[in-house]
Structure formats: structure tokens, C-alpha cells
Design a protein around this nucleic acid. Structure first.
Lengths: 221, 221
DNA sequence: AATAATAATATTGTCGACAATTTATCTGCT
DNA sequence: AGCAGATAAATTGTCGACAATATTATTATT
């Protein structure tokens, strides 16, 4: 599941990863308070490392912190989701454009064959694709952009936030095959080295998934 | 100078701001090592708060840290600058698009009259405009996007990095009047609620300043 | 003399304790 | 009873000390 290989060398790292997973996967519910002492007993580390982990979560926009008061998990709102997808649209659109310019042929071919391999799976509406396959696709293009700052920005922060939304809103299910076709077209544009088209298609693609989620979100309440 | 009002309530905050300024303004040179003990004596605080400050700087991409080794100020490279401007182009382009949709009329008017007020100053090639005026312009549009995550992203991280580049490369000087005209056109598009045009113009505007800096950068070495 | 292994030093990572601030509880007054 | 202020409890912020790791210096061997 971890595409972006993150090695936890220090205890702070481990606590950060644990805590992030517990939040993103919904074991710690959105909006709840993060008590430093409580977490330090739970994860069996000192308060200092919990603090450091929370600070990092704050930098990822996963928790909000007020001085002398404490940290809370961010509350998910439809506005927040909208904002997030606007940012993804901008950044991943740019990533697709850059990938069309810079992504090595070898990587493009790998991506193409990856998609071909997923074709059967998708036709059978295998839900797996939605999660891992989609993530894999987007991540490869981001890496293909060869923009290091863009890569860290997206894989450190934005993707976990986006997943947090999907998990907490119970997003699984359709939009599998349509998304697959969009992926195909995006890769084709990249292979043709047409950055402008790649960007347009990627932005559309993200707009579609945003709308898809937004509809579900409005159906819930 | 501080458009984004940041209040330092805790000692960690103060140290963070001090340290960031010392780095961005070039008092601590790019690539140098940040010793925790050294800084703690310099700023007269404990190592813990220096650590916290460094962690925050790391989240801003201003310093890089290796576990058990330490933190260094990022080294500025022409690739890094290029990457940064690609990100700015994507994000601020989106900000301009959103501002055209959401920015209140009052704020647009304020921005218009701000530019008019700067006109004389610009015609006289007052260098002040380049720095503060340009920053003010961009910041207002970002805020006008009404996308909170976008706002924090740009004002916490990216702008300080961009300024760090300009300072360390000794960027002052021309491109004042041309940039001013571009500003005028962008605001006009926003006032006309033409998000698509606003985005295009903003992206062009950022591409121009990127090229402007890139030329200077290549002339130096 | 050069290299490898080992010891010494310095730096970062982690911890528990204390200080400052906020939040909750209690007391007294109208 | 309800509110204001004072007091107590709990939580976060800061600190200095110790542990673990990395870097440097030393020694031994070829």
C-alpha cells in the first residue's frame, strides 16, 4: 500500500506514521482532540516524540493546533474537500504537463503496460482498482514530473488528506471503468509528449472524481 | 512587511520566525549546517524549542534534515528555482481562477485602486514596487481565492522560499513596469469574472518572472 | 605509510520534571 | 438560583539530563 517508501528510522517517525494511519483510516475520528499524555501512553513513548509527531501532522494539514490549548484532528467539511480537489487539480495538472516533457520513455511504457494489465480487472469491476490502481497511476505521473518539491508536496500531504476524506465518507464503488478510460487518454497524451493536452485531461479527470465524491457527500446529509 | 499576520505566542514561534528570517534574508547562508546547541545558545532558548523550530522549517522546505545527522539549510539550485516557479504557476494560476469566481467586489475594488495608486511610483521606477507591491498583489489574489488550504500553502511555505531565492541571488531591479501592466490585466480579468483568462494571465505572469530570474541566474555563473 | 579496527568525542534523539497557561471546580455575593 | 471571582486540576510549553547514533581521532597491523 505504501507507494512512497517512507522508512521510520526514529521513534518519532514510527509514532508519526502510526498516528497518521490511525487518523486517516478513521480509528481516531475527525474533530477529536489529541491529548499528548494519552497518546504517549498509548504508543508507549515519551510526550516529546508525540509532540513531534503532532507537529508533523499539523504541517500536513491533518491536525490543527492552538497554542497552549492543544491539537485536534481537522474536521472534514464539503468545503474542505472542494478546496483539496482544487489544489489537486492545479498541482496534478501541472504534474501531467511536466511528465509529458520529462518522463523517461521507459517509465511511460511501464505505466502503459500497467494500465493494460488492469484492463481485465476493471472490466470485472474489481474494486481494488479504485484504491490502489488509481493511486499508483497518479503517483507515477507525479514522479514523472521530475519536480521534487511537487512530489513531496503531494505524497507527504495532499494524498493522505484525500484518502482521509474517502475513508471517512465510505468511498468505494463505481467510477471505476470511466476513470480507467480517462487514465488511458492521459497516458496517451504523455506518450505523445503533448503537455498541454495531458494537463487538460488530468484536470478534467480530477474534476470528475471531485464531482463524483461531492454528489455522494450531498446525498449523505 | 508581514502581510500574512503571524503572531508569535510561544517561544517556539519566536525562534521559528527568527530563524526563518535569518535564513531567508541570508544571514545564515544556504547549505550551512544548523547545530541545535549552537542555535539554542544564540537564541537563548532550550534545545527543544530549537528542534521544534527546525522541524517547522523542514516542513516549509527551507531546511533538510537527516535522522541522527542533523539539519542543513537547503542549497539553492537553478533546478530548485525552476521547480518552485512551476508550482507557483500551478497554484497561483488556480488562485486567480478562483478569485475571479469568489473574490468579493469590495476586495477587487481595493485591489484595483491599490494598483492605480502604485502607477506613479512605477513610472518613476521606484524599486519598492518590485518587493512589497508585487507581494501585496499576489497575496491579495491568493486570499481572494477563498481556498484556505491554498492560502496557508502559499503563505507558509512557498513565498518564503521564493524570497530566499531572490535575496540570495540579489534580485532587485527591472521588470517593474512590465509586471505592473500584467497585474493590471489580471485584475481586469478578475473584475470581469473571467476565471479562465485570469488563470492564463497569471500563469504567463509567473512564467515571465521565472524567465527573468533564470536569465540573471545564468548570467551569474 | 596506508588501512582497519577501535576508542574518544560530539551531535542528535528521547525522557522525566518543572513552569506557564488554560480549563474546570468551588465559593461567596446579589 | 445565577453569576463573578478565586482556587484547584489538568494540559501544554520549556528545560536540563541521559541514551543512542554518527563523526572524528587514535592505535595497531600489514
Amino acid at each position: 500500500m505504501n507507494f512512497f517508501q517512507e522508512k521510520a528510522v526514529t521513534a518519532s517517525d514510527k509514532t508519526f506514521f502510526h498516528l497518521r494511519e490511525d487518523i486517516v483510516e478513521g480509528h481516531i475520528s475527525s474533530g477529536s482532540k489529541l491529548s499528548e499524555v494519552e497518546l504517549s501512553t498509548k504508543y508507549e513513548v515519551s510526550r516529546a516524540v508525540v509532540r513531534e509527531a503532532i507537529n508533523r501532522l499539523e504541517a500536513c494539514n491533518i491536525v490543527e493546533r492552538k497554542a497552549n490549548v492543544g491539537a485536534r484532528v481537522v474536521t472534514l467539511t464539503s468545503e474542505g474537500l472542494l478546496e483539496l480537489y482544487q489544489i489537486r487539480e492545479a498541482l496534478e495538472g501541472m504534474a501531467a504537463r511536466l511528465a509529458a516533457q520529462k518522463m523517461p520513455d521507459a517509465e511511460i511504457n511501464q505505466l502503459s503496460s500497467l494500465l493494460e494489465g488492469q484492463q481485465d480487472e476493471v472490466k470485472q469491476r474489481n474494486v481494488y482498482y479504485q484504491e490502489a490502481g488509481d493511486l499508483d497511476f497518479h503517483y507515477r505521473i507525479i514522479v514523472g514530473s521530475q519536480n521534487q518539491q511537487l512530489i513531496t508536496m503531494l505524497s507527504n500531504g495532499i494524498y493522505h488528506l484525500a484518502r482521509m476524506y474517502r475513508v471517512q465518507l465510505g468511498m468505494t464503488g463505481p467510477r471505476v471503468t470511466t476513470a480507467y478510460d480517462e487514465h488511458i487518454h492521459i497516458v496517451r497524451a504523455i506518450a505523445n509528449r503533448d503537455g498541454e493536452l495531458a494537463e487538460i485531461l488530468m484536470r478534467r479527470h480530477i474534476q470528475y472524481s471531485k464531482n463524483n465524491i461531492a454528489v455522494k457527500l450531498s446525498n449523505m446529509k
